[in-house]
């Protein structure tokens, strides 16, 4: 177990940033802390780093209790959102910094730093100043600088937020590849749900200082347990419906005139909130098959790869995406909606 949080609370004066969370991070995995801004994910990361000390609770890293230890005394290192490269040192000096502070000789530090730069593909940039590098290169130097210390845990604080979209995809693939190649334990903070799904073994979603849900990317997307989760992990339409249990594994969800059978072993009977994924709504010309939901197109936008529709129905306004762009519906068209059971999720009462 590389990182262990037990009932950790962090308060600033009266405000509570983290309200009692517990989780563990297994060695060799990449775990993402995901959540909207202000949810406490960065505070949590900084508590792992030792840059903040918890108000209550216990933190262990690699089996050692580090609750009251500062950053220097913990076996972690961190890649900052702003990269935090020392502007008065060149690339090699930056990467050597941590090695020198750990007591390595100048020669040994330089040797290890060069290996680190090789890992991130910046072999020939030793003498450059940070200001002479591009954003992606600065990012790599920051990663190399943290990597060469061989920490028990490597922390990333929104590492891609200062890069443009194309570079972001490339860098996140590089980080994932590096993590798997070297078997690193990584805790990664982001507010971007797609980025989290792309890099993580496991995701911990935080909301208002608490853990909302944790699990594999597939778990969280396909089986969100709360309306917040359904909204936050991908898009979804929250609607009210009636749930009736058919057998231990299946329920019938009644939305207006339309009923659909959904695989679910936990939902309770009665009225409840149901989340419908926009890609699970097949839009067809009315009249559609029996049991389909009738509606009227309120908005239609063409996005190249797919169409986006806003549709008025008896169950409420629904947002749907549709891959057929050749003959789109127009505003005012009567349509019939067929729901796929994989994208209909009972998320609570």
């Amino acid at each position: 177990m590389s990182v262990e949080f037990q009932n950790v609370v962090k308060r600033y004066g009266r405000a509570t940033a983290v309200a009692g969370i517990s989780f563990t991070v297994e060695s060799g995995t990449l775990v993402t802390l995901l959540g909207p801004s202000g949810c406490g994910k960065t505070t949590t990361l900084r508590m792992i780093a030792g840059l903040e000390l918890p108000s209550e609770g216990r933190i262990a890293i690699a089996g050692r209790d580090v609750t009251t230890l500062g950053a220097t005394q913990r076996d972690v290192s961190m890649v900052f959102q702003s990269y935090a490269l020392f502007p008065h040192m060149n690339v090699l000096e930056n990467v050597c910094y941590g090695l020198r502070r750990s007591g390595q000789s100048r020669a040994a530090a330089a040797k290890h730093a060069r290996e680190g730069l090789l890992q991130v593909g910046l072999k020939d940039y030793e003498e450059r100043q940070p200001s002479e590098l591009s954003g992606g290169q600065q990012q790599r130097v920051a990663v190399a600088r943290a990597l060469v210390l061989k920490p028990s845990v490597l922390l990333f604080d929104e590492p891609l937020s200062n890069l443009d979209a194309r570079l972001r995809r490339q860098m996140r693939e590089e980080i994932r590849e590096l993590q798997q190649r070297l078997g690193l334990t990584v805790v990664y903070v982001t507010h971007d749900q797609q980025e989290a799904m792309a890099v993580s073994d496991r995701i911990i979603v935080m909301n208002a200082g608490r853990i909302e849900q944790q699990g594999s990317p597939r778990d969280l997307y396909e089986r969100p347990t709360t309306p917040f989760m359904a909204r936050f992990m991908g898009e979804s339409n929250p609607v009210r419906g009636t749930v009736r249990r058919l057998d231990p594994e299946h329920v019938l969800v009644q939305l207006g005139d339309s009923g659909i059978i959904v695989a679910d072993s936990t939902a309770t009977e009665g009225e409840g909130t149901v989340a419908i994924r926009p890609e699970a709504i097949a839009v067809e010309a009315a009249p559609g098959p029996a049991g389909a939901l009738a509606g009227t197109i309120a908005k239609a936008s063409y996005l190249g790869t797919h169409m986006e529709y806003s549709i008025n129905t008896a169950a409420g306004d629904l947002f749907a995406t549709c891959p057929w762009v050749d003959r789109p519906f127009e505003v005012g068209n009567k349509v019939s909606l067929v729901l796929s059971s994989r994208g209909v999720i009972v998320v609570g009462r």
Binding site: S77, G98, R101
Partner: peptide, 27 residues
């Protein structure tokens, strides 16, 4: 001077006095 420079030094095993000497003071 961005605070993350100090924090970077701290997470890179530089204790507070070393951070002061090698990072803060030169800047």
């Amino acid at each position: 001077i961005d605070r993350s420079l100090d924090e970077a030094s701290l997470t890179l095993r530089g204790r507070a006095p070393q951070t002061l000497v090698y990072v803060v003071l030169p800047l």
